[in-house]
């Protein structure tokens, strides 16, 4: 990543202490063949990958100096409905989190994972994460990541998935916090008819700087990817968005779509969008669309004509733009957490 774009030149990691809090939350009962444990060295081979994520420095640090994370293995044809929840609520005693996560979904299995990163506004925290997913034939991994750390925090998050034939990895990313946030998602659609959706929202307020990079690499024939991002920027926030569709040789009849729509609430924000389409194969379909604009004046007017004041109306229009993505989160309580945080940042600030 080109950190100079958001002005992070000489980043130094602090000393990493133990992360003492319990973060694996499981409700309901999973079959005992499902193994969820804290990450350990035994799984190092799965992290022996070429992946620089938000930057080599960050991923190699996470590989070595992690202090939290899970290893989850789903046996063949095992489907678990209840989500695996990882709640990282950072505090004074646990201000540094380096989480390293491994998810292996064997053939025909299915899992839902929620990863929620949260900290109190005042505390300076650092999050650096690395998540690696292997979705085997016909397996489905649905993963929701919510970054709502306080404004004194920094967050770096690198995610990679390898998807085999007919497998699916569906990412939902919600970026609401930290004054510096780097977020990188890379999905290899290795198998025939493999698929991945990445739905994301981001909100920039205050002086937040965000660097988001989403990459779909099509290798298998008839693979399908879809990136859909909705953002809102206000105050003096800055954002760089990179959406990459890469069709490798052999990915014939594949299709990839990327779309980013951002609302600029203030003239003082800065928004860069850099879509890229790479093709080594002829018979593929790649589409990208990006638009950045002010809030829809007609929508605002419609709401105000019903007596709602400008702030309330703006909030509703912003929420309306996020809504299609948030509605994909099948957990009501999470939707509420997200909307509360959006409301707090839009109105109370």
């Amino acid at each position: 990543m080109l950190w100079k774009r958001i002005g992070l030149k000489d980043f130094e990691f602090p000393k990493v202490h133990d992360y003492k809090k319990d973060y694996i939350k499981i409700e309901g009962k999973f079959p005992k063949e499902v193994k969820i444990n804290r990450i350990s060295e035994s799984e190092n081979k799965y992290f022996d990958i070429e992946f620089s994520g938000v930057g080599d420095k960050f991923t190699s640090f996470a590989k070595k100096y992690y202090n939290a994370g899970i290893q989850l293995r789903l046996p063949r044809n095992t489907k678990i409905v209840e989500p695996v929840k990882l709640e990282f609520h950072m505090d004074e005693n646990n201000p540094t989190l380096v989480d390293k996560n491994l998810i292996i979904a064997e053939e025909g299995s299915e899992v839902n994972i929620i990863m929620d990163y949260y900290s109190n506004e005042k505390i300076e925290t650092l999050h650096n994460g690395l998540t690696v997913i292997y979705a085997k034939e016909n397996a489905t991994v649905n993963i929701i990541k919510i970054q709502r750390l306080g404004d004194s925090s920094q967050s770096f998050d690198s995610n990679i998935a390898y998807v085999e034939g007919n497998g699916k990895v569906n990412w939902i990313s919600v970026e609401l916090g930290s004054y510096i946030s780097g977020s990188n998602y890379r999905t290899y659609l290795d198998g025939e008819a493999s698929g991945s959706n990445l739905s994301s929202i981001y909100l920039g307020d205050g002086i937040r700087k965000m660097d988001l990079e989403y990459t779909m690499i099509h290798k298998g024939p008839r693979s399908i990817s879809n990136i859909e991002t909705k953002g809102v920027l206000k105050d003096n926030s800055k954002k760089v968005f990179r959406g990459n569709l890469d069709f490798k040789r052999g990915s014939r009849h594949s299709k990839g779509v990327e779309e980013e729509y951002v609302i600029l609430l203030d003239p003082t924000v800065k928004s860069d969008s850099i879509p890229a389409l790479l093709c080594d194969e002829d018979d593929v379909e790649g589409e990208h669309a990006a638009s950045a604009g002010q809030i829809d004046e007609n929508k605002l007017f419609y709401l105000m004509s019903r007596g709602l004041d400008e702030r309330e109306s703006k909030k509703l229009v912003v929420e309306a733009s996020f809504r299609p993505i948030i509605d994909r989160i099948p957990y009501k309580y999470l939707q509420e957490i997200i909307f509360d945080e959006i409301e707090r940042r839009l109105i109370d600030a």
Partner: peptide, 24 residues
Amino acid sequence: MKADERARKGIFLSFQYPEEIPGI
């Protein structure tokens, strides 16, 4: 006056093309 103030004063407009607002 802004639209919301006018609405509070008792003016109502039935729009020719009403806007769609998902979320509420």
